[in-house]
Design a protein around this nucleic acid. Structure first.
Length: 461
RNA sequence: UCCCGGGUAGCUCAGUCGGCAGAGCAGGUGGCUGUUAACCACCCUGUCGGGGGUUCGAGUCCCUCCCCGGGAGCCA
């Protein structure tokens, strides 16, 4: 007899059939005549109620079915005579595969705070909340691939170890095999020629520059992989290791880029509603921070567009008492972004055409000479979820920008080659995967949407 | 890194003016019931984050360090 997942089991199809279910005990309720077990197996938001009659041979096994124990149960699926669940399994055989000492098992038959669960990351996926989050995370990851694959994008694998430290995307983690107790020096400086790669190496902060050369050969590509930032950021929306999706398209401008970003997000909202309705409903009821209706509405409506200049004028009009002054030329602060999404728009918004001074060197200079073809997708509560742009494809202008900002032209000759030989307009963006999951699940802290969060001082699991 | 708020039983938290260390939940035992985070009774549970100081006496006041949370900056 084959084992059946709870996800498949709870249906009329299995009524009256003998089945085997494996999982972990959530709770046990005992009485003289009956015992009830609640089992979860990770396949579904639903749990399974197992009824054990005191006349069954396996009744004595109940003593070992403490919270956390792993069990294999053989029995018949029945329609449940009591309220609270539609189906249940009437147990005939119970095998306790792995016991769990109730005095030591940290997960109790009660609610726990997210902070506490963060300290037991190796067990928290057994809870309703984290089960829901990680199933949603999986569905989104899969949907991301489907979206791009359906549209002819190639998944490309950009390096995790890089030598370029000039993207300005943040602080880098060094990668080295040098012996810290005996660091080779030359002229009082670290002699990297003796290091593994013969020069300094780092963990990647972005695969964009590599994605660009692949797009300028293959047409449409995307990356989906881990990214590392060594900033000492202690916030609810930063991780030191996170996953990023970076599509890049040749023969495309900012409008195409925006359209892609919008279609992309709408598709993901739609998919998660179709495939994770139970998970979303659970999170909605438990934390009251998301609404299925809202996500559903988002999956079907166009995003608002606003230029940076318009945004500044909206912010100046407002009577809000901002901590940071609003000035054309300065970057938008969190409080400004929140005001735009929550008060002005009331939903996600795409802000475009930022002053060149607040954006990266590779963004395409607009005809006005002072703004660049950039776009940020801002969402309520989380803030920036996507940052993208049309890239500067004109060699001379790009060189001038790099000089202006002080970026080594020498080290990026390969990047400039793309403008020397068959340059084309191209555009792309970066989506922070965890921020997407955070936005959709409504989790306050980004550390709760990734199995093993990496942040300053946090590398426990 | 900066600004706030915290750290007391396994978990969540109360602890007044400096004077015997508390509750709910969890756990254990017994009872009871097709039970639903069951219910009822009883029982068990402490490095009050670490170190130093003031005091007859410190969970409580002072200094210091560590850790956690929220906000900010940096960014996705």
């Amino acid at each position: 007899m084959e084992r059946v997942l709870i996800k498949e089991l709870l249906s009329d199809e299995y009524i009256g059939r003998q089945v085997i279910v494996c999982g972990w005990v959530r709770t046990r309720r005992e009485s003289k005549g009956f015992a009830f077990l609640i089992i979860s197996d990770g396949s579904s938001q639903d749990t399974l109620q197992v009824v054990v009659s005191n006349e069954a041979n396996c009744f004595e096994q109940i003593q070992k079915c403490n919270t956390g124990a792993s069990v294999k149960i053989k029995g018949f699926l029945r329609e449940s005579p009591a309220k609270g669940q539609r189906y249940e399994v009437e147990a005939q055989e119970i095998e306790v595969i792995g016991e769990s000492d109730p005095e030591k098992y940290p997960l109790q038959k009660k609610g726990h705070t997210l902070e506490f669960l963060r300290e037991i990351s190796h067990l928290r996926a057994r809870t309703n909340t984290f089960g829901a989050i990680f199933r949603i995370r999986n569905v989104l990851a899969n949907a991301i691939h489907n979206f791009f694959q359906d549209r002819g994008f190639l998944w490309v694998h950009t390096p995790i170890i890089t030598s370029s430290d000039c993207e300005g995307a943040g602080e880098l983690f060094s990668v080295t095999t040098l012996d810290f107790k005996n660091i080779p020096k030359k002229d009082d400086m670290v002699d990297y020629s003796r290091d593994f790669f013969g020069k300094p190496a780092y963990l990647t902060v972005s695969g964009q520059l590599e994605a660009e050369f692949l797009a300028l050969s293959l047409g449409k590509v995307y990356t989906f992989g881990p990214t590392f930032r060594a900033e000492n950021s202690n916030t609810t929306r930063h991780l030191s290791e996170f996953w990023m999706i970076e599509p890049e398209m040749a023969f495309a401008d900012l409008k195409d880029d925006m359209k892609l970003a919008e279609d992309f997000l709408r598709y993901l909202f739609k998919e998660v509603i179709i495939k994770c309705e139970k998970e979303l409903l659970f999170l909605q009821n438990q934390y009251k921070r998301i609404s299925l209706d809202e996500i559903s509405k988002l999956s079907d409506t166009n995003f608002n567009h606003i230029t940076y200049t318009e945004a500044i004028s909206e912010l100046k009009k407002s009577k809000e008492n901002f901590q940071f002054t609003v000035d054309w030329g300065k970057d938008l602060q969190s409080e400004h972004e929140k005001y735009l999404t929550d008060k002005v728009i009331g939903g996600p918004v795409i802000v475009t055409d930022y002053p060149k001074g607040v954006k990266a060197f590779y963004m395409r200079l607009n005809n006005d000479g002072i703004t660049v073809a950039a776009m940020d997708v801002l969402v309520p509560k989380v803030g920036e979820i996507i940052g993208g742009s049309q890239r500067e494809e004109r060699l001379e202008i790009l060189e001038n920008r790099m000089e202006e900002i002080g970026i080594s032209i020498e080290n990026l000759q390969w990047y400039l080659d793309l403008r020397r030989f068959g340059t084309v307009p191209h555009a792309g963006f970066g989506l922070g995967f965890e921020r997407l999951v955070q936005y959709i699940t409504g989790m306050i802290n980004i550390r709760d949407v990734i199995p093993c969060p990496r942040a300053p001082g946090e590398i426990g699991f």
